[in-house]
C-alpha cells in the first residue's frame, strides 16, 4: 500500500465501491437469508475487494468482478458458532441464484431505478410500512406493535406491497423496452 500510485488507486477503489456498494449489497442479500450473516459477508467482502483490487483491470465491469468475489465469500462463509443459525441455503441453489442474477445483470441498474420510482407511487400508508420494515429495520412483530395491527395483517400488507412493487418494476421495464 506504500507504492507511489497507491493513493490514486485507493481513490479509484473508493469511488467504485461508493458507486456500486448498494448493488453489491443487494446481491449478497439476495443470496443470503440471514441478515446478520449478509452484513458480515459484506464487511469481509469490502476488505477482500480492496486486497484483490490490484487484480481488477480499470475500465472493466467492477460490479461483475465484485459479484464473483462476493459469491466466493458467500460460498465460503462459516457462521461463527455463537450465533443461532437461521435457515441456510444449499450451495447448489446459491450458485443457481447467482447464475440467474448474472443472466439479468444488464437490467439490474434499470430495475433499481424503476424500483425507486415505484416506491414513490405507493400510497402513504404503504410507504410508511416500507420505511418501518426496510429503513428502520423493524421485524414484523415490532411493526405490528408500532402500528397497532396484528402480525398477520402486517405480514399480508408487506407481501402485498412487495407484489405491487414487483409488478410495477416489471411494467416499467416492459414499457422501457417496448
Amino acid at each position: 500500500m506504500e507504492n507511489p500510485d497507491s493513493s490514486a488507486r485507493t481513490e479509484e477503489y473508493l469511488l467504485l465501491l461508493n458507486e456500486h456498494e448498494n448493488s453489491i449489497a443487494a446481491y449478497v442479500h439476495t443470496l443470503v437469508n440471514d441478515h446478520a450473516d449478509a452484513e458480515d459477508i459484506l464487511q469481509a467482502c469490502r476488505l477482500t475487494l480492496w486486497k484483490k483490487f490490484d487484480q481488477f483491470e480499470t475500465g472493466t465491469n467492477f460490479v461483475a468482478w465484485a459479484r464473483k468475489i462476493a459469491l466466493h465469500q458467500v460460498l465460503n462463509y462459516r457462521r461463527s458458532a455463537k450465533r443461532k443459525p437461521s435457515y441456510a441455503t444449499d450451495p447448489a441453489l446459491i450458485e443457481s441464484i447467482a447464475a440467474e442474477i448474472d443472466r439479468q445483470s444488464t437490467q439490474l441498474d434499470e430495475r433499481s431505478e424503476a424500483l425507486k420510482a415505484c416506491l414513490h407511487k405507493l400510497p402513504e400508508a404503504h410507504r410508511q410500512t416500507v420505511l418501518l420494515r426496510y429503513f428502520e429495520g423493524f421485524e414484523i412483530e415490532e411493526i405490528a406493535r408500532e402500528t397497532d395491527r396484528s402480525e398477520g395483517a402486517v405480514y399480508r400488507l408487506l407481501s402485498r406491497i412487495r407484489s405491487v412493487l414487483g409488478k410495477c418494476v416489471s411494467e416499467t421495464m416492459e414499457a422501457g423496452t417496448a
Partner: peptide, 8 residues
C-alpha cells in the same frame, strides 16, 4: 432481489 434491494 427486490427485498434485498430494499434492505441493502
Amino acid at each position: 432481489w427486490l427485498h434485498a434491494e430494499l434492505l441493502a
